[in-house]
């Protein structure tokens, strides 16, 4: 392969000592691929209607630029009122407990029926961390045992649900409407109440790879196995 004049580099007799041309080809391919991936990503992202950040297109809007989102510094009582409204969302199935063991950051301990427990770490109104564990596993979060927030469940099924909850946290993330993001996440998360009893929408079975349907659709919360969701 020859890249125009740079092909002359290949004629360099000190090629063995300075493999410049090989590295150049490698760089060229890399940048070509980057361009291609960026093109694909851009077409996917432009079809997504829910914008996560506001883009100022014209000069006029630049002048009238609003202050940037400040949801990372929301007063505590706003968080408290959001959490108390969350507790009222699904009083039968979900209990939400708020604690602040490490300063002002709120940690939500969520118990979903008799199925699972989750620890959600909030930075103001942004969900920063989600861990899902079994009811029987240790959830005692305090200053002396902060590792319970960061350690993952010992069961494969809850490790998988934690992964999916993290992807949901990113999906629902919306700095312009933080309260809606948290509420949407909770509504989605509630569907795990039937984790062990709801068969997969696609294959109609409960087990696939010895795991129950761990995936819940973001729009309609129907249950799927991880492999069945495409």
């Amino acid at each position: 392969m020859s890249l125009g004049n740079t092909g002359l580099l290949n004629q360099d007799p000190v090629h063995d000592r300075a493999p410049l041309y090989g590295q150049l080809l490698h760089t060229y391919k890399w940048s070509d691929k980057l361009h291609e991936y960026a093109g694909v990503a851009s077409s996917i992202l432009s079809s997504n209607t829910l914008k996560r950040s506001t883009t100022m297109s014209s000069i006029a809007t630049k002048r009238l630029r609003r202050p940037g989102p400040t949801i990372h510094a929301v007063p505590q009582h706003n968080v408290d009122s959001l959490v108390s409204s969350l507790a009222l969302l699904f009083p039968q199935e979900m209990t939400v407990q708020l604690i602040r063991p490490m300063g002002s950051s709120a940690i939500l301990k969520i118990t979903l029926g008799q199925t699972l427990r989750a620890v959600v770490v909030l930075r103001s109104l942004i969900i920063e961390w989600v861990v899902v564990k079994a009811i029987s596993e240790d959830h005692h979060v305090d200053d002396h045992k902060p590792e319970t927030v960061w350690s993952s469940s010992r069961y494969k099924v809850f490790q998988k649900v934690t992964d999916h909850a993290n992807s949901a946290m990113l999906h629902f993330y919306s700095p312009n409407m933080p309260e809606l993001a948290v509420k949407s996440f909770m509504t989605w998360f509630r569907s795990y109440n039937t984790l062990f009893s709801h068969p997969c929408q696609r294959c109609g079975r409960l087990l696939s790879d010895n795991l129950p349907p761990t995936w819940r659709d973001f729009r309609n919360t129907t249950a799927y196995h991880e492999n069945c969701r495409q």
Binding site: Q114, T115, A134, I135, S136, Y155, V157, F158, T194, F196, S197, L206, L207, P212
Partner: peptide
């Protein structure tokens, strides 16, 4: 992972 037989016996 599950304590309640009613939820997971089908599985």
């Amino acid at each position: 992972p599950c304590d309640i037989p009613a939820s997971c016996f089908d599985l």
